[in-house]
Computed example of a mutant assay.
Amino acid sequence: MNRWSWDDLPETVRRAVEAEAGPVIHMGEPEAGRNSMFAAFLETTHGPVFCKGVRLDDQQARAHRHEIRVNQRLREVTADAPCLLWTIETGGWLLAGYAFVPGQHANLSPGSTHIPAVIDLVSRLADNLTPSPVPDLTPLAKKYAKFAGWGWLAERNADLLDPWEKQHLDRLVQADRDIADALNGQSLVHGDVHELNLLVADGQANLVDWAWARTGPAWVDAALLTIRLIAAGYDPADAERLVVSTWGMRRPDTSAAAVSTFAAATYGMWRRLAVQHPSPHRTGPVEAARRWTKHRPS
């Protein structure tokens, strides 16, 4: 998505932002993020603020409204996500202002000093967000049903399946059938845990960009973190040992079979998306999900 600069925004929109945040002195663009037409760190006379949004006629407007709704409740229950300060809907734009969160994107590679803070964060959020503080939220299982990958690949792109996938196709397709039961849960889960959404500073981590938040079991974000740790260089068994102590993973109702189903279904969904929408950034996570799926008990 092409980014608009501060000066590109309509004057009425800029005036509305400054009415909330204070006169803008300087604008800095974030390194990451692909779903906002405008995203910037605004240095204002009242202090720094992170502002992002889209035109109301853009297809991403719905996702931004969803994120705003989620963050309105998050600010009441946790300090581990950016505090939503204000929203603006004017001049054909929807913009939200969030408290500035200092830090750098998490380094998840073996030996990184960021990892303890990230593990603590994921564990704490699972506890604080069970049950979900956001009412009537769409279950994560619906997303997995929409993008179920293994049946789609078998029917439309069987020639792309590798020998291991063909050999275990029955198990993989069954994971797509079982994922709805595996994802039954009432926790609020972020659903998109990766390095660029994790900011670390002074031994504390923060999880940003809640546009994909849904309801599901409390272990989901720890499971997603497991895949990212594998992608960063961990052996699957070592990655699992890092997350096994998180609040969601150690709950007595957390099923090893459900986690295995999730691993396989996530691998299939990401495999499908890599075929439909090829991009270099998908290669590492897909391979990590594959390695984790092969490691998990069937």
Rank of each mutant, 00 (worst) to 15 (best):
R272V: 06
P23R: 11
W86G: 01
S187Q: 01
L42D: 05
R177A: 15
R290A: 06
A40K: 04
G22K: 04
H64M: 12
D8H: 07
V286C: 01
A264H: 07
L153G: 06
D209Q: 07
L42W: 01
V189H: 06
F50M: 02
W247I: 08
T254Y: 01
Q276Y: 09
A32Y: 15
L9H: 01
R291H: 09
R15W: 09
D221E: 09
S245E: 15
I25W: 13
G203A: 05
D238M: 11
R15A: 14
V286W: 01
A264L: 11
V17M: 03
S255Q: 10
H64F: 10
A180N: 08
T45N: 13
A265T: 08
Y98G: 04
E155S: 14
A205Y: 04
V77C: 08
A40I: 05
G97E: 04
D176H: 01
V77Y: 01
A256M: 12
R3W: 09
T226A: 12
W270M: 15
Q174P: 06
G284Y: 07
Y267D: 08
I227L: 15
H114Y: 00
L225P: 04
A145K: 12
L9A: 02
L183I: 07
A40R: 02
R55A: 08
P102D: 03
P252C: 09
A99G: 13
D221C: 08
L137P: 02
H295G: 05
F262T: 12
V77L: 07
K52C: 04
V193A: 04
E20R: 15
D192K: 07
V200M: 02
F38Q: 00
R214A: 12
S298P: 09
Q72G: 15
L160P: 04
A257W: 10
N71R: 11
P48D: 08
A222S: 12
G268N: 01
R34C: 11
G47S: 05
C51R: 06
Q276H: 08
Q59N: 14
L153Q: 10
S5I: 00
T78V: 00
G191Q: 05
H194I: 03
R282Q: 11
Q59V: 14
R296D: 01
W219P: 03
S260T: 13
A213K: 01
G22C: 02
N107R: 13
L56K: 13
A263C: 12
L229G: 06
R291N: 02
A237P: 08
P236L: 02
V24E: 04
G53E: 02
I25C: 14
Y267H: 13
D162L: 07
A264C: 10
C51S: 09
D80E: 13
P297G: 09
Q167M: 11
R241L: 13
A148Q: 02
K142P: 04
L140C: 02
A237I: 12
A21Q: 00
P131I: 05
T226Q: 10
M249N: 12
R62Q: 14
H114E: 03
T283I: 14
P285S: 00
P236W: 05
P285T: 00
T254C: 13
L84E: 04
G103H: 08
G149F: 00
V17I: 10
P252W: 07
A257G: 10
L169I: 03
E195M: 11
I88C: 10
E155C: 11
S5E: 09
P133E: 05
D181K: 12
N2C: 12
G233A: 03
G191E: 03
L121R: 00
L224S: 05
P163A: 10
W292L: 15
H190R: 07
L95G: 03
A237W: 10
